[in-house]
Amino acid sequence: MSGNGNAAATAEENSPKMRVIRVGTRKSQLARIQTDSVVATLKASYPGLQFEIIAMSTTGDKILDTALSKIGEKSLFTKELEHALEKNEVDLVVHSLKDLPTVLPPGFTIGAICKRENPHDAVVFHPKFVGKTLETLPEKSVVGTSSLRRAAQLQRKFPHLEFRSIRGNLNTRLRKLDEQQEFSAIILATAGLQRMGWHNRVGQILHPEECMYAVGQGALGVEVRAKDQDILDLVGVLHDPETLLRCIAERAFLRHLEGGCSVPVAVHTAMKDGQLYLTGGVWSLDGSDSIQETMQATIHVPAQHEDGPEDDPQLVGITARNIPRGPQLAAQNLGISLANLLLSKGAKNILDVARQLNDAH
């Protein structure tokens, strides 16, 4: 009898209710805020589980004197976190989706994509230029951005401005803007500013005609071990179906173009009346040469937790077992079709030249 009692006690200790789920994140304040929001949602869904947040620095956090596009290494903000995932030191990792490459290392998958916040870019102005827009900034004003995508589009749109690289986390960039006289304004992701509670610093939100956004911008991705079915089931509740389908289309477009950090590629997606609209573009580094096109596809946005595919093969690095396969494939095909259209119009040449120029500098 006593033996059975011990077995029952052991089973209770090993039951999922007692389990601590370890969540990996970057150390920056924004990353911690984003991770806290994901953990809060998981806690609400699984009140019996405990969650421990483990923060670590990544290569991208450490190399702050070089433009991201020049470092010449993929997975700048993800490699150390993936290493911890691989060694079973954490069970899942919360990322900004735009930091996750469209091809993940073997053994990993994006197990959830959370509801997207505003994906557009924002302009934050130096205190002396508050009330201005990019259009009304004085001639030769210097605007800071760490992104080739932003610089290429904005140089084309605002030729009277000069664009220079600015690195560091959000706090560091804002301090550089406010305390030094080098920059009249800087460009940042609206979602990051909003998550930090800095709505009052948003001086201008850039519309798609001015600057399309990065693939996955404004959404959070939760990376897990691809074979860890328990954790895949656990994080599945975080999937937002519309965000998922938009981001599958965007990531398929980028992957098929073979774009990345070192080339200016941008997108804009919208879901309306059962249609998914995808606009994508590529630019030369100075913005003088560009190709942009829009395509659409009829896609039914499923309700969360309709029964999805059981075999769960990944699409552009994403596993969404609780979302039907048909809409996911339709979104992926839309991204591939748009990429093929741009490639047929000469996108590869623009991107190759951009890559060579970026590598040469």
Rank of each mutant, 00 (worst) to 15 (best):
V20T: 12
V23D: 00
K27Q: 08
S28T: 13
S28V: 02
S28P: 00
Q29S: 12
L30D: 00
L30Q: 00
L30M: 07
L30F: 00
R32F: 07
R32M: 12
I33K: 01
Q34M: 08
T35I: 00
D36Q: 15
S37C: 11
V38W: 02
A40C: 15
T41H: 12
A44S: 12
A44Y: 13
S45A: 14
S45H: 08
Y46D: 10
P47S: 11
G48D: 13
L49V: 14
E52I: 13
I53F: 13
I54S: 08
I54R: 09
I54L: 10
A55Q: 10
M56Q: 13
M56P: 06
S57I: 01
S57W: 09
T58V: 08
T58S: 10
T59K: 09
G60S: 01
D61H: 06
D61W: 06
K62T: 01
I63N: 14
I63Q: 05
T66L: 09
L68V: 12
I71K: 12
E73V: 10
E73N: 06
E73T: 14
K74A: 10
S75I: 10
L76M: 12
F77K: 00
T78M: 04
K79N: 15
E80V: 07
E80S: 09
E80C: 11
L85G: 01
K87G: 07
K87M: 13
N88A: 10
E89H: 08
D91A: 08
V93K: 00
V93W: 01
H95W: 02
K98S: 03
D99H: 07
D99M: 05
D99T: 02
L100H: 01
L100G: 01
V103S: 10
L104N: 03
P106C: 13
P106T: 13
G107K: 07
G107E: 10
F108L: 13
G111F: 03
I113V: 02
K115E: 11
E117R: 07
E117W: 10
D121C: 10
D121V: 02
A122F: 03
K128S: 08
F129I: 05
G131W: 11
K132W: 12
T133V: 08
T136G: 09
L137K: 03
L137N: 04
L137R: 05
E139T: 08
E139A: 13
V142F: 08
V142Q: 06
V142G: 10
V143Q: 04
V143A: 13
T145H: 04
S146E: 03
S146N: 12
S146H: 05
R149Q: 03
R150M: 05
A152N: 07
Q155A: 14
F158K: 06
P159T: 09
R164T: 12
S165N: 10
S165A: 07
I166T: 06
R167F: 05
R167C: 04
R167K: 06
G168M: 00
N169R: 10
N169E: 05
N171A: 10
N171I: 10
N171F: 04
N171Y: 13
R173H: 03
R173I: 02
R173V: 02
R175G: 10
R175Y: 06
Q180M: 10
Q180I: 03
Q181M: 10
Q181F: 10
I186F: 07
I186S: 06
I187E: 03
I187N: 05
L188F: 08
L188K: 01
T190M: 03
A191K: 04
A191Q: 00
Q194E: 06
R195I: 15
M196G: 09
G197W: 04
G197R: 09
W198Y: 11
H199A: 10
H199Q: 06
N200L: 05
V202F: 01
I205K: 14
L206P: 05
L206H: 00
L206C: 10
H207T: 13
Y213I: 03
Y213K: 02
A214T: 07
V215L: 08
V215W: 00
G216Q: 00
G216C: 15
Q217G: 01
Q217P: 07
A219K: 00
L220C: 09
E223L: 10
E223H: 06
R225M: 13
L234N: 14
V235I: 03
G236T: 09
V237Y: 04
L238V: 08
L238T: 03
L238S: 04
H239Y: 05
P241Y: 02
E242H: 15
T243M: 00
R246H: 05
R246T: 08
E250I: 01
R251K: 12
F253D: 02
L254Q: 12
E258W: 04
G259E: 10
G259L: 12
V263E: 12
V263Q: 15
A266E: 04
H268S: 04
H268Q: 15
H268C: 07
H268F: 13
T269E: 01
A270G: 06
M271F: 13
K272L: 08
G274L: 09
T279I: 13
T279D: 04
V282R: 01
S284A: 15
S284E: 00
L285D: 14
D286A: 05
S288E: 14
D289K: 03
D289N: 05
I291L: 11
E293N: 08
E293D: 14
T294F: 09
M295F: 07
I299E: 11
I299M: 15
I299A: 12
H300I: 10
V301G: 13
V301L: 07
P302Q: 05
A303N: 15
Q304L: 05
D307T: 05
G308M: 03
G308W: 11
P309S: 10
P309K: 13
E310F: 01
D311H: 14
D312M: 07
P313D: 02
Q314D: 00
Q314P: 11
L315T: 03
V316Q: 02
G317H: 03
A320K: 04
N322F: 14
I323L: 14
P324C: 04
P324L: 12
R325H: 13
G326E: 13
G326F: 01
L329M: 15
A330T: 01
N333S: 01
L334R: 00
G335M: 04
G335E: 03
G335Q: 06
I336M: 05
A339R: 04
L341A: 01
S344A: 01
S344V: 07
A347Q: 13
I350D: 04
I350N: 08
L351D: 13
R355C: 00
Q356T: 03
L357S: 15
N358M: 15
N358A: 15
A360M: 02
